[in-house]
Write a protein that binds this DNA or RNA. Structure first.
Length: 786
RNA sequence: GGGCGGUUAGCUCAGUUGGUUAGAGCGUUACAUUGACAUUGUAAAGGUCAGAGGUUCGACUCCUCUACCGCCCACCA
């Protein structure tokens, strides 16, 4: 045995030994007690083409639980998988495309999908190898990919059930649309950022005989073309004398336009002048106001973020000129043009250049969100949320730490319907088809035989193109909200075109427990569902955890897991969030290679509380590398002691008694000194506290107690105290008993070094078992009970 | 605007239902050490547990308020 533990000489070999022993699979797990209830965890699937970051390393929590339960003889399985990560992956791929000077618009839907599939294939595999480097004992034979057949089958089946139950609907509803990325986002996927923009005061109507002009304050003068109304709070005394007027004629940039006056007490009297312009097609509040007051919804901005005035019919040459000036230009540009024009003719009476407000951007690229009214697929969430709330109130599912339960309720109680359609290719296509004969208003974008993009109504295009050409080159299809559709996995007939939207990635990952385990009738599903623990970071509590709970309840009436453990966010040593731009990203694989996986694992656990950040520093990992070496040397000391055959043989009998008998041992069984008796008693306490800490998800205490006991009590105190003793066989017996128990208790968090020592001991003839430590029985407390 | 956390040693943080002298790692200082380990050992310094008030025999722990930091949700035409 070398005097220093070098993880590089052991980790890869040991991982191989574990895999070959069948320990990771409950069907081949050596110590399994089939009569016990299985213990199951599903690994939150990383993106298939991702590589490991510090957050993934926190899944060590799961490995600790898995290894502990496996040692207890439970049929134990930790099922890994990877996510297709819809938009995120497509975004990465598009960046890749644009580096090559290409764009997604040059490809038909199927080709683009195939290319991304290949891209993901080429870049996947890394993450699993990295998880193995950390020692994660997943059952790789059960790995699932989010686009596997079995996943799609379940997702389609759920969709069909939801249709049958009336939970799915299509609506022309205002959604968060990103012109930059060409897709819709749910409310969880957008953020609000503060920005300074000019606030324009536009005089809509002179006061005439009234007390006040009607002046609106807005940051969006460009939508004025299709503004339908101006709104005033009925309690606003300043405008009482306007109450008899139902509409005004505004002399706008495109000439005179009619605007209704509506009265609504949602209007903030404090803001601006208390008069607001209403744009039902491009603002969520205005849309709601419009529905309430029956206003027209006239879209003004197209899918590319450009002003679209093609529906406007000019009635004079001046107007035509004006329309041409604005039409087809980007929103930001038109805003400046309109503002300049209205300032020039005095319509804009004031500009506040320092107005600070929040604008909506998408979470990934920070691009502006344009609220748009477009047909989308929605899921009615109220009924699902009610089940989710009831399950938590009933403690069918509990949260660690419990404060997240409050957040969970808050979100579910205020839940909104879920727009599940995304206008991207990379994902599971919504299994819907439209007949071109039944739906004359279908619009398509496709590539013709010459790879030219064609946009238009199918009905009009059929004179010029074969339907097959359209189908083959199809990029996107837009069906009116009232289109007749058929739900089917396969194309239902010759005159059908497919829906081109895909499901929100969370719609499929929200069914992860069902899809991985093979709902509804596979053996694994019957055996392992519901699972026991779901461990993830708190940032996807709503995105993922809550939805898994709701969707599992919907399909099975059972929660998918009993405990939700929300682990720490890993930060840098100063407690700052890691980010590429700050340059403070710590790569867990680097640390693993330098100091060993065990050191990293325990560094992530010790001193962390669930839901709170954990600061990771190289020094901390280094400190625990020293601990691994300490373990190694305690083991080495014992090996050296046992090399005296006489001592070893004598100690053998004593050890048997130690193992077989309860404490306190009487002296006729074993001639123990008080310090022997004491360390043995303390060991029993340690077994109890370690087990209890794991039962209560107190991982930090679990790790630190062991660290403290082994380093201070075993090494510094007990071991030092024995150095002058003559009765070496007793010392050896006690040391082997105590330290081997410590190795078992420590194995879940530091699996490699403990297993490496186990092997060394086996070679040195100290152990009577051939069994690997990974499937050794978890220690029990043996005490005389008074 | 609504909600949730945090504030404990120089730094990063634990502290399970209120119970003797408040803990760890790193850092600092001094000393020691050629036989398990320098990836070591021994010892020391260092805290009015953010502030104020309250409940209690007893409060880092429970309650109220204040200050600062952070997060989540909603959202400002």
């Amino acid at each position: 045995m070398d005097s220093t533990y070098n993880h590089k000489n052991h980790e890869a070999n040991i991982y191989k030994l574990w895999e070959e022993s069948g320990a990771f699979n409950p069907d081949t797990q050596k110590n399994v007690n089939s009569s016990k209830r299985p213990f199951t965890i599903l690994l939150p699937p990383p993106n298939a083409n991702a590589s490991l970051h510090a957050g993934h390393a926190m899944f060590v929590i799961e490995d600790i639980l898995i290894r502990w339960h496996r040692m207890m003889g439970d049929p134990t399985v930790w099922i890994p998988g990877t996510d297709h990560a819809g938009f995120e992956t497509q975004y990465v791929y598009e960046k890749h495309l644009s580096k090559a000077g290409k764009s997604r618009f040059q490809f038909d839907r199927q080709t683009l999908y195939n290319d991304i599939y290949q891209f993901v294939q080429d870049n996947s595999g890394t993450i699993f190898n990295q998880l193995k480097q950390l020692g994660f004992s997943c059952d790789w034979s059960r790995a699932t990919f989010m686009l596997d057949e079995k996943v799609i089958k379940v997702v389609y089946d759920t969709f069909q059930h939801m249709i049958d139950d009336g939970l799915i609907y299509r609506d022309n509803y205002i959604v968060n649309y990103s012109p930059k990325n060409g897709t819709t986002f749910s409310e969880l996927e957008v953020m609000h950022v503060e920005r300074i923009d000019p606030l324009y005061y536009i005089n809509i109507a002179d006061k005439g005989s009234h007390t006040h002009d009607l002046v609106v304050a807005t940051v969006r003068p460009e939508t004025i073309f299709y503004d339908e109304a101006i709104a005033i709070n009925p309690n606003d005394g300043r405008y009482n004398d306007w109450k008899d007027t139902t509409e005004v004629i505004f002399n706008g940039p495109l000439g005179s336009q009619q605007m209704r006056i509506i009265w609504d007490d949602s209007i903030d009297m404090e803001f601006g002048t208390g008069v607001m312009k209403v744009t039902p097609a491009h603002d969520a509040n205005d849309f709601a106001l419009g529905r309430k007051h029956n206003l027209r919804v006239r879209p003004l901005i197209d899918f590319f973020g450009k002003i679209d005035l093609s529906a406007f019919s000019p009635n004079s040459p001046t107007q035509t000129e004006r329309v041409q000036k604005y039409h087809g230009k980007k929103v930001a540009q038109v805003r400046k043009l309109v503002a300049a024009d209205m300032s020039a003719d005095g319509t804009i009476v004031k500009v506040d250049e320092t107005y600070t407000h929040n604008v909506t951007v998408d979470y990934k690229t920070g691009g502006d969100i344009e609220p748009m009214v477009m047909p989308n697929w929605f899921v009615k969430m109220k009924p699902l949320a009610q089940k989710g709330i009831a399950a938590a109130k009933n403690k069918d599912v509990t949260f660690v730490p419990s404060r997240f339960e409050t957040q969970y309720y808050q979100w579910l109680e205020n839940i909104r319907d879920w727009p599940i359609s995304r206008q991207i290719v990379w994902g599971i296509r919504i299994p819907v088809w439209y007949s071109i004969n039944e739906n004359p208003h279908l619009e398509v974008t496709f590539l013709d035989e010459n790879h030219e993009r064609v946009i238009g109504r199918v009905a009009d295009l059929l004179d010029q193109y074969e339907l097959n050409t359209i189908r083959a080159g199809l990029q996107t299809l837009r069906a009116p909200v009232d289109a007749v559709y058929r739900v089917s996995n396969e194309c239902p007939g010759d005159d059908y075109l497919p829906e081109t939207d895909t499901f929100d990635t969370w719609f499929s990952s929200g069914q992860w427990p069902l899809t991985t385990l093979g709902f509804p009738d596979s053996a694994d599903f019957k055996r392992f569902f519901p699972t026991q623990v779901l461990d993830t970071m708190w940032d996807i509590l709503f995105f993922w955890v809550a939805r898994m709970i709701m969707l599992s309840l919907y399909r099975t009436n059972t929660v998918p897991f009993e405990t939700v453990y929300l682990h720490s966010m890993v930060t840098d040593e100063k407690g700052a969030k890691m980010s590429k731009s700050k340059g403070n990203v710590i790569n867990p694989i680097d640390l693993t290679e330098k100091y060993g996986a065990d050191a990293l694992r325990i560094a992530l656990i010790a001193g962390s509380a669930p839901g709170n950040p954990i600061a990771l520093s190289e020094n901390k990992v280094k400190g625990y590398r020293n601990f691994a070496n300490k373990l190694w040397n305690i083991a080495r000391f014992i090996v050296l002691l046992s090399q005296n055959e006489e001592i070893r043989d004598k100690s053998y009998e004593l050890r048997k008694k130690l193992k077989e008998n309860s404490l306190p041992l009487t002296s006729y069984l074993l001639p123990l000194l008080p310090e022997d008796q004491q360390i043995l008693n303390e060991l029993n306490t340690l077994i109890e506290t370690s087990t209890s800490n794991l039962e209560h998800f107190r991982f930090s205490d679990y790790a630190q107690n062991l660290y403290d006991f082994i380093w201070n009590r075993v090494a510094s105190d007990y071991l030092e105290s024995t150095k002058g003793r003559e009765d070496k066989e007793v010392v050896l017996a006690v040391l082997i008993h105590v330290f081997s128990t410590c190795l078992k208790l420590l194995h879940p968090v530091m699996p490699f070094v403990t297993e490496a020592i186990w092997q060394e001991w086996s070679a040195a003839g100290i152990l009577e078992t051939e069994q690997l430590l990974i499937t050794i029985s978890w220690p029990n407390v043996k005490l005389h009970h008074q």
